[in-house]
Design a protein around this nucleic acid. Structure first.
Lengths: 232, 232
DNA sequence: GGATGTTGTCGTCGGACTGACGATAAGCGT
DNA sequence: ACGCTTATCGTCAGTCCGACGACAACATCC
């Protein structure tokens, strides 16, 4: 950070890209948009856009997320993922992108969006590999982060609507980790982790069978003890 | 990522900043440089610099690390930490910085460096708070990352020279976590974690007392089982 | 050379947690 | 009433953990 002359350095464009994940009927899905222009015209890519002059990085990501999904800001979990800046990652010019990871519950089908007419929720395995730019890598990093975070944080509840059952939460874990879990052990661990779940007192039979307790997410953000996946 | 006109967006400068950590006589230390110019003239800051036109982000960080510490490239662990881009974080212009975290063992005292004449290794608690720009935040995030990564990765060995003892490794954990550990339990866990340590067969008495086995780091990068700190 | 101190290494023990299950509860449709 | 489905509670053996005791192998000082 010694003295510098800004004009001596080439213009760099800074964008935010979004890895927006959700769980839809048992599959981990990501929001992708089909590109209309070169480069990579016709290919699918992660949504994203430029950071505006007076906007913080996270604010830019939140704005893009709202634009792209139609969800009210603050509804979803959003965190910075990583930055990607290989010199040739965009053939037009030097673009450094700050990727963000978003987890949303129950998203509406994208269609009313402004220029997001070509957006869709796609199972992760379906679009991988094949995304534009270095977005395969970005998506993989995002999925890895989500998998890891489910282990030791209460983040999985971000994939669930307000009142959810233990079984619904379990299906989230199974979709993200891609592995079946024992319902009885999962129930024990999740209900005994302090601050993870709060019972609402209501029940539902929307999954059939015996009525299940409805929960909302508790105050805890870190899980003690963590919910480890078996060593794979 | 819809169509865009690069000239419609203001120039953004992209830099890399470095959180370089090491352990020196029981204290977690960070490399800081004293600024000679405004803004923040006279204050200490994390080392960093511009990303060059044809340089990847990690490559820029590696170059800065070599320049600043005099260490041969590839000697230390280096990973991306996070990006910081608040619009007013640098009063001169819009600067987005991609912070990186480096862990080094046994660093030389900085002095021969080019413009790093004012660089020093300072205990983390000594410089915090008080760094220039948003570097307090960056340093805190780096320390948090290091603390977390010691739990479930074999990264602590990056703080040790080639042949190290279990006690030296333990002192690394104690310095980073700021908490004493039981030598006997630590020894058991660390030597039974598959792939973490490889005995060299040699011994040393450099810490006094009974001669201790010398180890080099094993092939494992993730620890099974993890080395959890007690719930705090 | 023996006492003493220092550090490294191995064991033991009770408690907590885990995965693999069995058993029971409480709805639904027929 | 009967079976089907899902939820929830228990049991049991194995594993891991922290707290600690015991011993081993050096250096130093008398």
């Amino acid at each position: 950070m010694a003295g510098y002359d800004p004009s001596a350095f080439p213009a760099v464009a800074v964008t935010v890209d979004l890895v927006v994940l959700t769980v839809r009927n048992g599959a981990l899905c990501v929001l992708v948009v089909r590109r209309g222009e070169d480069p990579f015209a016709g290919r699918e890519a992660l949504p994203g856009g430029f950071v505006r002059p007076d906007e913080d990085l996270l604010a830019a990501a939140a704005r893009e997320l709202a634009e792209e999904t139609g969800l009210a800001p603050g509804t979803a979990h959003l965190e910075q993922l990583a930055s990607y800046g290989a010199p040739d990652r965009d053939p037009r010019m030097r673009v450094v992108t700050v990727a963000h990871l978003a987890l949303v519950a129950d998203p509406p089908d994208p269609q009313a969006g402004t220029d997001a007419a070509a957006a869709r929720w796609a199972p992760v395995d379906e679009v991988l590999p094949g995304l534009a730019f270095d977005h395969d890598r970005v998506l993989r990093d995002g999925v890895d982060r989500a998998r890891a975070k489910l282990e030791y944080t209460a983040l999985a509840a971000s994939f669930c609507r307000a009142g959810f059952t233990v079984a619904e939460l379990r299906r989230v874990y199974e979709a993200v980790w891609g592995r079946p879990l024992d319902p009885r052990n999962f129930h024990r661990k999740v209900t005994s982790a302090a601050g993870f779940l709060e019972a609402t007192g209501e029940t539902t039979t929307r999954d059939g069978g015996r009525p299940a307790q409805l929960y909302r997410r508790g105050p805890a953000t870190l899980l003690h003890p963590p919910l480890l996946r078996a060593d794979s």
